[in-house]
Design a protein around this nucleic acid. Structure first.
Length: 415
DNA sequence: TTTTGAGTTGTTCGA
DNA sequence: GTCGAACAACTCAAA
């Protein structure tokens, strides 16, 4: 039924107007809608500058798509969203469902606070919403490959080709200016098409090489929903499609077990003995470990808010198995700085490296930072780019020694 | 029902 | 130098 009250489209991690189910649902209720984004300290406070800067770019781009009418406010959504709904006499608030632990709690609280104004959830940041893919016995998967197969069988709908033109965007009653950014957000679709046509054919062979420009670099766009995975899945297959499946798998795992955002999935790891050395942790964060591939990765993270996937594994393995520090220390540092930082993917990839997660890496699979560098940065180009001085540093630990310590500690918690 | 084989990302050691 | 085995324990689907 078409209502005379306007709707609100509350954007969160769906910062686009194309192929946007919540926007379509809003348009179905009312021809007039207010586009809203809430700057939530809960999410902004633990974020580093590159992460915030990327969000601001996304908001500018979205604002352009809304004809300059995106309303941006600072505050707690539980207070601000109902207040704005009342201010404009909104009949409903439309969102893409959030499946993260904080987002779920927040949305339930907002729903409650909205009272008679309905909170309508349509779509999600995933091709298949978390919780939909189950084993034959109705329980969730704990192993990736069977999940992926079932996920492929489940399938997803094709991207819709409707845009913002179906809605008449309301002039916001008031709004905070989006901070200026040094650069504009690039056209994500064009980046995808370039990758698809030029680098995707070799992706399988080259994706592990941080010294080459071989990956799509689209993770941050997926994180903020500038691109929906449906769009990419339409024209890719093989390994790249599997990478998108990992993103969906970990979202599914976190949906079923939200406590694993901070807790070991495998509880026998609760007995694991960790070290507590803040100086070693600081050296890792600053990229001063004396292991060049580790230092290059950590410095790329600080400089760009990004790190190549292969290097993420190497530095994570180093933190957990060479420095014996808790995986959640590293996970928090990643979430602070990674522009593409996504709680589900981040925490569960860390747990995978630490051996306490799904499909856990066998404990004896300990990355040797020297071997890894030779294999994946054979000419040293990546190291030269980000940490040319690292080879002159004294290694803060002896890998061969710490490897054995890690093996012994694992042995000690074996069931 | 039970068995079997495979499962993202590795390293080392000894033949 | 190359190559295969060994390094756990458990999940899941197919046989």
């Amino acid at each position: 039924m078409v209502s005379s009250s306007p709707s609100i489209v509350w954007f969160r991690r769906d910062l686009r107007t194309a192929d946007h189910p919540a926007l379509l649902a809003a348009a179905g209720r009312s021809p007039r809608a207010l586009g809203l984004f809430v700057l939530d300290d809960r999410l902004l406070k633990p974020s580093g500058q590159p992460r915030i800067e990327f969000l601001h770019r996304c908001l500018h781009a979205l604002n352009d798509q809304l004809g300059g009418r995106l309303m941006v406010v600072h505050g707690d959504p539980v207070k601000t969203v109902p207040r704005i709904a009342q201010e404009i006499g909104a009949g409903s608030v439309h969102v893409s469902a959030d499946y993260g632990p904080y987002g779920r709690r927040r949305d339930e609280a907002v729903e409650e606070a909205l009272g008679d104004v309905e909170l309508v959830r349509s779509g999600s940041p995933y091709a298949v919403a978390p919780g939909r893919v189950l084993k034959g016995d109705g329980t969730p998967f704990k192993v990736f490959t069977p999940f992926r197969n079932a996920w492929l069988d489940h399938g997803w709908r094709a991207p819709a080709d409707t845009g913002a033109s179906t809605v008449d965007w309301l002039e916001p009653p008031h709004s905070t200016a989006i901070p200026k950014t040094t650069e504009k957000l690039p056209d994500a679709m064009r980046l995808w098409e370039e990758f698809r046509d030029e680098r995707l054919p070799d992706y399988d062979k080259t994706r592990d090489r941080p010294d080459l420009d071989a990956t799509s670099r689209l993770s941050a766009f997926l994180r903020w929903g500038v691109l929906h995975p449906r769009t990419l899945l339409r024209d890719c297959d093989g390994t790249y499609r599997s990478e998108l499946a990992w993103r969906e798998f970990y979202a599914d795992v976190l949906w079923h077990k939200p406590e694993t955002a901070r807790q070991n999935l495998d509880r026998k790891f609760d007995r694991m003995v960790h070290d507590d050395d803040r100086e070693l942790f600081e050296a890792w964060k600053q990229g001063r470990t004396g292991y060049p591939i580790v230092d290059a990765g950590m410095r790329q993270l600080l400089a760009e808010g990004f790190m190549h996937n292969r290097v993420r594994m190497i530095v994570a393995s180093f933190l957990v198995k060479d420095l014996h520090l808790p995986w959640w220390w590293g996970a928090r540092h990643f979430m602070e700085h990674l522009v593409d930082g996504d709680l589900a993917s981040n925490q569960h990839n860390w747990q995978w490296v630490a051996g306490c997660g799904t499909d856990a890496a066998p404990f004896f699979r300990i990355f040797n930072p020297i071997t890894q560098a030779k294999k994946f940065d054979p000419d040293g180009a990546y190291v030269r780019r980000y940490a040319p001085d690292s080879a002159d540093l004294t290694p803060i630990v002896d890998h061969a020694v710490e490897r054995q310590v890690a093996l012994d500690r694992y042995q000690a918690i074996k069931s």
